[in-house]
Design a protein around this nucleic acid. Structure first.
Length: 258
DNA sequence: ATGCCCCCGTCCCGGGGA
């Protein structure tokens, strides 16, 4: 089973890109972020016509996540627990093919320091709490999405230029690695320990052409899922298409359960 | 030091993104 994650920067503006990606057999499950549309306007019929299942959790203009899958989606839950006041649509879970998946659009957190950075860190604390519950379930778990964290300097084309940014600050990296210390595996880094891998290139200043990228889209696997990894990588194709998202998909392949 | 570009919306500018 191949699970991919893609921040599409608008489900409607990127509808053809997404459907082409699914039709091409690129994955079995797609974790989608930044749908930027309310649930009432989500183009659900387009997915159903392809024979795919889809669940979505959105809001007007900003944020929004979705999960598309060949197989039925079970036990869908929307929203990250831990703050009833938080109305930003950034998190959803489902069980598909026996794997518990989460689609994550983690807050950017800039400017840092400041209230937006505080929100990012508190959100990551809530994510760690929820992730701990999922670990305890001993299900195979895949946390996939736009984490808005550049884990290491190798994941950034210009580390000095990004110093102090919310995506590279020590507090952000520590919160990301606390998930790893708890037992989650960064699938792309585990499969490619020394390779430069990027998943996002800014629209501006010819970043894509110059390969000025960063790796901020991640797939974190619980031990029960990590034991089944047969490969992981970046699909750079979609970033080079006409009117692309500024992110490109990352994927992990899991062997069938033993 | 700033903007480059792109998305959205009771929409032709401004807020937000990373």
């Amino acid at each position: 089973m191949r699970i991919a994650s893609w921040n599409v920067n608008s489900a409607k503006a990127r509808q053809d890109h997404i459907l082409n990606y699914l039709s091409a057999g690129s994955c079995d499950v797609l974790l989608i972020q930044e749908t930027k549309t309310q649930d009432v306007n989500f183009p659900v019929e387009a997915y159903q016509q392809l024979g795919w299942h889809v669940a979505f959790h959105g809001q007007k203009s900003y944020n929004g996540v979705a999960i598309a899958a060949r197989m039925p989606l079970e036990d869908v839950t929307s929203g990250l627990p831990g703050d009833d006041e938080d109305e930003q649509a950034r998190y959803m879970e489902a069980t598909v093919g026996g794997v518990r998946v989460a689609t994550i659009y983690l807050p950017n957190g800039n400017p840092a320091p400041g209230p937006k950075f505080d929100y990012k860190l508190s959100w990551m604390k809530r994510l760690r709490a929820r992730a701990g519950e999922m670990l305890a379930s001993e299900m195979p778990v895949v946390l996939g999405g736009d984490f808005n964290v550049i884990p290491q300097d190798i994941d950034c084309y210009d580390p000095p230029g990004w110093e102090g940014d919310a995506l590279t600050r020590p507090e952000s990296r520590a919160a990301f690695y606390s998930l790893c210390h708890d037992g989650f595996t960064d699938a792309l880094r585990a499969c490619h320990p020394a390779e430069v891998l990027y998943s996002y290139w800014d629209y501006q200043a010819g970043a894509w052409q110059k390969d000025n990228g960063v790796r901020i889209d991640h797939l974190l696997l619980s031990p029960e899922a990590a034991n089944r990894i047969t490969g992981a990588g970046v699909d750079k194709g979609p970033r080079g298409e006409e009117k692309p998202s500024d992110h490109t998909p990352v994927w992990v392949e899991l062997a069938d359960p033993a």
